[in-house]
Structure formats: C-alpha cells, structure tokens
Amino acid sequence: MDILSIEHLTKIYGAGEAATHALDDVSFTVQAGDFIAIVGASGSGKSTLMHLIGGVDRPTSGTVRMNGEDIFKRTDEQLAIFRRREVGLVYQFYNLIPVLDVVENMTLPVRLDGRTVGEERLGSLLHALDLEGREHHLPNQLSGGQQQRVAIGRALMNAPSIVLADEPTGNLDSKNSAEIMGLLCASNRDLRQTLIVITHDEDIALMAHRVIALEDGRIVADERRG
C-alpha cells in the first residue's frame, strides 16, 4: 500500500535568469513501512525534497499525497497539525529548543497538539534512546550524539507514520552514527514506521530497502535492494 505519492514535484527558487530548479518534476511513491535512502551530491535537491514531504515548505508545482490526500491543499493551520501528528523530522544540527530540557523538547509535538504526554511512551523512548538520567538536562549540557537522540525522540514521540531524517549522522562520529541509525532502523522495523533518510553516507544507503539518487533536482536512479 502506498502511504506517500509524489507527483511532478517541482520547486523553483528565485525568478527569471536567477531561477534555480531545486526540484524538477520529481515523481515516486512510497509504501508504508518502507525505508528509503535519498542520496545525491550537494545541491541536488535532497533537503528541498525532505522539507516538501514534511510540509515545512510548499512546492512551485506538483503534489505530495499522504494516504491519498494532497497535503498542500491544507491550510497553514492544517499543515501545522500535519507536521505535529503525521511526520517526524530529524535534522543534521539537531535543532533543539535551547531553553527546554530533554523531556520538554521530546514532548513538544504532543504538547503542541494539546494532548497529555503518555508516561509509558515517554519512558520507553527515553530507555530506548539511552537518555535515562538526562531527562532534565538542557541541550547545551548534552553531547552531540545525545542531542541527536533527543531530536529522534521528538520525531518519534507522536508515533508518526513517516520519519524524515536529513543527514541525521552528518555531525556525529562513527560510534554515535551507528547508534542513531540503529535507533531509526529499529523504529522502522519494529513499529512499521516509514523512514526516509537523506544521506551522503554509503553505509547508511546500504541499510535502506530502496535508494533514490537525485542529481540537479531530478531522479537519476531508483533502485530497490534485496
């Protein structure tokens, strides 16, 4: 079953001669529970694609359908709800709120949704992310790997159907990288969460079920691996 259907997605920055085609007529579908790696050189449009799928940015043309519904037909308000309930975003530079502690950062999407935090869910996530004992530390009291684990916790907290990660290990050493990828893979495997990872790292690409290669905003390869 296709959870995500991307059709003729185009994003142009600037206008006239200065216009840059960050994405140029990209189309593909994603099945629920899939693990996709998107690879490509710098400026190939990877991050733009992720922001469009995550509803953070709007395309110049084309559609992103989540469970058959075009997300860009939603109002800004509805799109905000979409972001907090249906996707989880993980960035290379963690992007935690500096004044909030670990738990507060992790539970941000739940609280934004006005719901109460499930203690059990939080506990298991903290355990899985090895953040027990750090619950009330602020981001600047944590190492890079820990901060990224908090960011993953924030992305997973609402049990979204899709997790989008933009170079999640780009800022980490190999040990931390392996741990982070282990966590993401586990959530994909155990919880059947769809995982889309943008990466430069071949090892990570090899873990994925499917690898889409972008070049100058176009898909140049789309391989499903064993």
Binding site: R85, I97, L108
Partner: peptide, 15 residues
C-alpha cells in the same frame, strides 16, 4: 531559528 524549529514541529500561528 528557534521559531523555525517550533514551526517545523507543528506550532501554529495562533500559539
């Protein structure tokens, strides 16, 4: 940047 993160986490304009 802080605001951008909040928005990407789904904070709406009212909040």
């Amino acid at each position: 940047r802080e605001f951008a993160v909040l928005q990407s986490c789904g904070m709406d304009a009212g909040d």
